[in-house]
Nucleic acid binder design. Structure first.
Lengths: 193, 193, 193, 193
DNA sequence: TATGAATGAGTCTTCATTCAT
DNA sequence: GATGAATGAAGACTCATTCAT
């Protein structure tokens, strides 16, 4: 059963999702959230003890939303390939629908001027180009297959890299010996199947 | 030649790196940066027109540092495999050395209580478990090779996924048809080589 | 006859006495009073039109309690001496039983740190020491009788002084010529009898 | 030497003295203090870390002012009698000059309506009348001397009483046996000399 | 009669930025 | 060139009071 209280909480969280999504935690104000929710400022405090708590509950709500969807999307598929495709598509759709929210919430874009975004874009391209160059060279020397989509390959490398690096740091027990590094690279090279 | 002015700028940026790294953009104050740099608050404004500009220049400095190193590390290797290993190791080393800075700068750790971190950790595990389940099922059914390191495989999937999804959104020209999705998944499955 | 309404009013006043006694007027909230009384917040407004009125009625209730007791205690004694002793003892007992309430209600203890209380205590000692020094010097020179309890004498001087000074200010008709000052001091020196 | 900083601090304290004197701690706002001092609101925080600290420093300043004056006034007199008269006069003068400040700071007059003040005044009279009645009865029966100023006598009793009672409570080591009560009453009756 | 829910008005406090020296 | 001092603008949070039920 959905309580009256629970319903109002959801309303506030959804307003927060919009406001913090557009403005980030520090730029989004409680006043804006209240206005967005169509309620008084103090009312929020009847449901969330502080801005921090509201933000956290909002994140949980947001992430749980993602998980449920991702789970459902993959569950009904049978092969690994179709599962991965489903997951990829779901992910893209989700990211697309929440593009603004994510962009602002993840990045520090609020305090980054247009001029600067350009600069950063170039940098990102440069980072990417390192992977891209490796891929191109590899195709050239025959180490990599010639039908490879270079851009996607580069993206996979970078994404996988970051994902693994981060995990290495925050989950130290996964170990940090070179064997894992080779394992990682080998999977990338030979594929999962 | 390094000008006097340039030298001072670097000092400030390095102080900013420390302060914003520890506290994030909004929590880090100009006063702290000044104190860290051992200069007066107003002096910063002689070198950077605003907090925003300082932060941006700091990011550029930070990222360029990464790029230079990444470039050097891969350049001297010959095969794709050794290049990728070098890049992976460099990346891990870099992330490790800047772990604190990155963690604070990237995440919203300031306004996230310990209690909440735990909650989020569980969620992250859940997200990961979706990929993990797919991998496990795949090994079981023989679709994936049995010698696969499940955790690393899951991490690769998630990282690659995010990287590609994000790119899809922000670089629309890369197209958004299912062909690419299949391409992406196929590369993951069959590997780069 | 005690009406139902009157009974409820008393309950609220007693709750207010506790809450405002512990927290002072501004720190004590209507919400706390309501909780203490075991009723809803809005209910208080059925009996008292505002926080101010509640506070005032509470004071009246408190003071009347004192007066009744003080009256009873002195009434049944016969000599001035025994009356004064009875009054003194009653006063001490009353103050003692309400020590906490009085202390908080009178002082600004809320916004006074422990560190500061110490400072203030020293000051109070200093004030006291002025009277004390006079007493000691007087005993030394023989102006005051040698069997005098110095501390009590000093306290009497200070209390009487404040009481009279305050009255001078707020009851101007009592006059403000030096004759009264002499009169006052003479009573202190020669006693009432 | 009076530093620039010290001078500004005094200015703020004096403004606070006026504002808090007129309005009490909770009613007086930092904005008012700033306006009174002719400075910006934030400037206060350059000198005092919080409203609380400002208030405390203000109290210290206020009390020290009193003490210095009281000390000076009594020091230059020779006999106990003249010392007491000097102290009394100083006290009256001080209270008179700070009447408003004291009245507001001590009492809770801000949240007490005119109507209520009347009520309280009557109560005070009643309290006083208890002492007054004892005095009158005493004069009648010959226990007290007939030339006694009844009002001043009553004030002395009440003031001394409160002073001693309070001390009993907060300075427990002074003991709480009846001997002291008698001692106290005897001093009142027989005088200090 | 009793009250939970809602809220606007009000206040402390922070901080990027300016400017006189 | 360097800076301490000053500050306006902004935002989180509180609470007495109201009102629909």
């Amino acid at each position: 059963m959905v309580t009256q209280r629970g319903k109002r909480q959801i309303e506030i969280i959804e307003a927060a999702l919009k406001v913090f999504g557009e403005n980030g935690f520090f730029q989004g104000t409680m006043e804006e959230v209240a206005k967005e929710a169509g309620i008084g400022k103090a009312t929020i405090y009847e449901y969330f003890s502080s801005k921090k708590e509201l933000f956290q509950e909002m994140l949980v709500y947001f992430v749980e939303d993602y998980i449920t969807g991702a789970h459902d999307a993959t569950e009904k598929e049978n092969t690994v390939r179709s599962k991965l495709i489903a997951l990829t598509e779901y992910n893209i759709a989700f990211v697309k629908s929440k593009a603004d929210t994510l962009q602002r919430m993840t990045s520090r874009s609020e305090h980054v001027s247009e001029d600067f975004k350009c600069k950063i874009f170039n940098i990102k391209q440069t980072v990417c180009s390192i992977a891209l160059k490796i891929v191109e060279k590899g195709i050239e020397t025959g180490e990599l297959r010639s039908d490879l989509d270079k851009n996607i390959a580069a993206l996979i490398i970078i994404g996988a890299l970051n994902s693994v690096s981060t995990e290495y740091i925050f989950n130290e027990e996964i170990a940090s010996n070179t064997i894992n590094t080779s394992t990682f690279v080998d999977i990338l090279l030979s594929g999962l199947s």
